[in-house]
Simulated assay, not measured.
Amino acid sequence: MRRRPAGCAGSVLLAAVLALAGCTGDDGKPSAGPSHASGTRSAPGPAPTSALDADPAKAPRDEAAARTLIDEVIAEPALFGPEAVEATPYESDPGRWSVLGDDCVWRQEPLPDDVLATLSRHFEVPPAAGKGAARLVAVVTVHRTAEEADWENAGMLEEMLRCPEQQLGADERLTDLISSASYYGDSANRYADDVLRESGDYRGAGAAPAPYAWMQMRLGQVTVSVSVRAGRGYDMTEAQDIGREAGVRMLRRVADALGRDGTGGESGEDTPGAEGAQGNGAEGNGR
């Protein structure tokens, strides 16, 4: 799982462009940009049409409503296939979330004011048929507004640029990370307001590198993400497919819960294959 306040871009549409060109200041050096926490932000660029035909009456406005929505949409083991089981611990502390520091090290911090609720669930696909165990994490976060959720994604794009190697724990690292992003209507994305992907190698203590994939999608004020730390015997395509399919199914649940008459716009389980193509040849999701 991953979260961090936004930095050099005010909207995912703008940030996706900066992610390709490099987010730089006048001197051409990377710019940290305005602080999300301080409230000193540049004006967001024009937002594309949303993938969600939202019903305003269904939008969560307080913590209780946000937690109810999360309970309805977050993955259970079956969403990852019949072999998946609950890991220990199964659910994270709902009062904290992961933040990537300036030193590219992940830490747990209290939720910021713009987040109504969040929850992470941990799963495992046990070793079988010559493959090692795969560790999976599903995360659903409900922001107060769609704009705040958009800022979260913009900040993640900045992270992808500045931290191609990240420290998860004392003996766990992510290396050789590459990423991509698409907004609604771009790169065959017709089901999410924004899609972020990242992939690379997961390196545990004394273990050989294994495929790592992370993907996050946003509909309005809600983000859903899935990370996959695959075991031996998995290739990157398999890791990406596991995360993509579960993520799109969670997104469909969000669309059904918040869309007018439960229609949820164009989001759906019939579209996961659209995520297969991307400019840098990789995609991902997770922590």
Score class of each variant (00 low, 15 high):
residue 2 R to W: 10
residue 2 R to M: 08
residue 2 R to V: 06
residue 3 R to N: 06
residue 4 R to Y: 12
residue 11 S to E: 04
residue 11 S to I: 07
residue 13 L to H: 14
residue 15 A to V: 05
residue 17 V to G: 15
residue 17 V to R: 13
residue 19 A to M: 11
residue 22 G to R: 03
residue 24 T to L: 12
residue 27 D to G: 01
residue 31 S to R: 15
residue 38 S to W: 04
residue 42 S to P: 10
residue 45 G to L: 02
residue 48 P to T: 05
residue 49 T to E: 11
residue 49 T to N: 08
residue 52 L to C: 02
residue 53 D to F: 02
residue 57 A to G: 10
residue 57 A to M: 05
residue 57 A to I: 11
residue 58 K to G: 07
residue 58 K to A: 14
residue 60 P to T: 14
residue 62 D to A: 13
residue 63 E to G: 13
residue 64 A to D: 13
residue 64 A to Q: 10
residue 66 A to F: 06
residue 68 T to W: 05
residue 69 L to M: 04
residue 70 I to T: 00
residue 71 D to S: 08
residue 71 D to E: 10
residue 72 E to L: 07
residue 72 E to H: 09
residue 74 I to D: 02
residue 75 A to G: 05
residue 78 A to P: 05
residue 82 P to H: 13
residue 82 P to Y: 08
residue 84 A to W: 10
residue 86 E to F: 11
residue 87 A to G: 14
residue 88 T to F: 11
residue 95 G to V: 08
residue 96 R to T: 14
residue 97 W to A: 00
residue 99 V to T: 07
residue 103 D to L: 15
residue 109 E to V: 09
residue 109 E to G: 00
residue 114 D to M: 07
residue 117 A to G: 04
residue 119 L to V: 05
residue 120 S to R: 13
residue 120 S to D: 15
residue 121 R to C: 13
residue 122 H to L: 08
residue 123 F to T: 03
residue 128 A to G: 11
residue 129 A to Q: 14
residue 133 A to E: 13
residue 133 A to F: 07
residue 134 A to G: 07
residue 135 R to E: 01
residue 139 V to H: 15
residue 140 V to C: 07
residue 145 T to K: 00
residue 145 T to F: 04
residue 146 A to W: 02
residue 146 A to D: 10
residue 151 W to R: 11
residue 153 N to D: 12
residue 153 N to W: 10
residue 155 G to K: 11
residue 156 M to L: 13
residue 157 L to V: 15
residue 160 M to F: 14
residue 162 R to M: 11
residue 164 P to Y: 01
residue 165 E to T: 09
residue 168 L to C: 01
residue 170 A to V: 04
residue 172 E to A: 11
residue 173 R to Y: 00
residue 175 T to Y: 02
residue 177 L to N: 01
residue 177 L to E: 02
residue 182 S to R: 14
residue 183 Y to S: 10
residue 184 Y to Q: 03
residue 187 S to V: 05
residue 190 R to H: 14
residue 191 Y to V: 04
residue 192 A to P: 06
residue 194 D to K: 01
residue 195 V to M: 00
residue 196 L to R: 02
residue 198 E to R: 00
residue 199 S to L: 01
residue 201 D to S: 08
residue 203 R to D: 13
residue 205 A to L: 04
residue 205 A to I: 01
residue 206 G to N: 00
residue 206 G to P: 02
residue 207 A to Q: 15
residue 209 P to N: 07
residue 209 P to C: 07
residue 209 P to F: 07
residue 214 W to C: 12
residue 220 G to R: 00
residue 221 Q to D: 05
residue 221 Q to L: 10
residue 223 T to I: 09
residue 224 V to R: 02
residue 226 V to D: 00
residue 229 R to C: 06
residue 230 A to F: 02
residue 233 G to M: 04
residue 234 Y to E: 03
residue 235 D to G: 12
residue 240 Q to S: 11
residue 249 R to D: 03
residue 249 R to K: 06
residue 251 L to P: 00
residue 252 R to D: 13
residue 253 R to V: 01
residue 256 D to G: 10
residue 256 D to T: 13
residue 256 D to V: 13
residue 256 D to K: 14
residue 260 R to I: 12
residue 261 D to V: 12
residue 261 D to P: 14
residue 262 G to P: 05
residue 264 G to S: 12
residue 264 G to F: 11
residue 266 E to A: 07
residue 271 T to A: 15
residue 273 G to P: 02
residue 273 G to R: 15
residue 274 A to E: 07
residue 275 E to M: 12
residue 277 A to Q: 10
residue 277 A to M: 15
residue 278 Q to T: 13
residue 279 G to W: 09
residue 280 N to V: 12
residue 282 A to I: 06
residue 286 G to T: 06
